[in-house]
Simulated scan of single mutants.
Amino acid sequence: MYAVFISGGKQYRVKKNQIIKLEKLNNSPGSIIEFDKILMIADENEIKIGKPFLHGSKIKAHIENHGRLKKIKVIKFNRRKHYKKQQGHRQHFTNVKILDINNFNGK
């Protein structure tokens, strides 16, 4: 069984007990959160697709930790114009472990 949900403007396909990296969430590590913007749930026998979301379905997850990714360099450069701008960026993330996928829609 897997599900597709939205978090931070991105879509994620998850299974039970999977650990994924999401955009940073403002919850403390060790807490349990629920995602309710579920687009699709599929198991061996059937696929349920929301219009746009499946109402009543939830994904329960445990926040493992927060962190920052490796630094990337952003460089803007115009040749022969004496212009060079250099900047670094480290993206924040949250590791989340999927505990359960509940499908209450129609069952």
Rank of each mutant, 00 (worst) to 15 (best):
M1C: 07
Y2F: 15
Y2D: 06
A3Y: 02
F5W: 07
I6M: 14
G8Q: 09
G9R: 05
G9Q: 10
K10C: 03
Q11P: 01
Q11I: 06
Y12D: 06
Y12Q: 09
V14Y: 09
V14I: 14
K15V: 09
K16V: 12
K16T: 10
N17Q: 15
I19C: 13
L22A: 08
E23A: 14
K24F: 00
L25H: 02
L25T: 01
S28W: 03
P29G: 02
P29L: 09
P29W: 02
G30V: 04
G30R: 11
S31A: 09
I32S: 07
I32T: 06
I33C: 06
F35M: 05
D36V: 01
D36Y: 08
D36L: 02
K37S: 07
M40D: 00
I41Q: 03
I41A: 01
A42T: 04
D43H: 08
E44F: 10
E44I: 05
E44H: 15
E44L: 15
N45Y: 15
N45I: 10
N45S: 14
I47S: 10
I49S: 05
I49F: 00
K51R: 14
K51P: 00
K51C: 02
P52G: 10
L54W: 08
L54P: 00
L54H: 05
H55P: 00
H55K: 12
H55G: 07
G56W: 03
S57G: 11
K58D: 04
K60S: 10
A61F: 08
I63N: 05
I63L: 11
E64V: 15
N65D: 13
H66I: 06
R68H: 14
R68D: 13
L69R: 15
L69C: 12
L69E: 15
L69S: 15
K70T: 09
K71F: 11
K73A: 09
V74I: 11
V74C: 06
I75C: 06
I75Y: 07
K76F: 05
F77A: 04
F77V: 00
F77H: 11
N78I: 04
R79D: 06
R79M: 09
R80E: 12
K81V: 03
H82S: 11
Y83I: 04
K84D: 09
K85T: 03
Q86M: 13
Q86G: 04
Q87V: 00
Q87D: 14
G88L: 07
H89M: 06
H92D: 15
F93D: 01
T94A: 13
N95F: 08
N95Y: 06
V96E: 06
K97D: 01
L99E: 15
L99G: 02
N102H: 08
N103Q: 13
F104N: 15
F104C: 11
G106R: 07
G106D: 06
K107N: 14
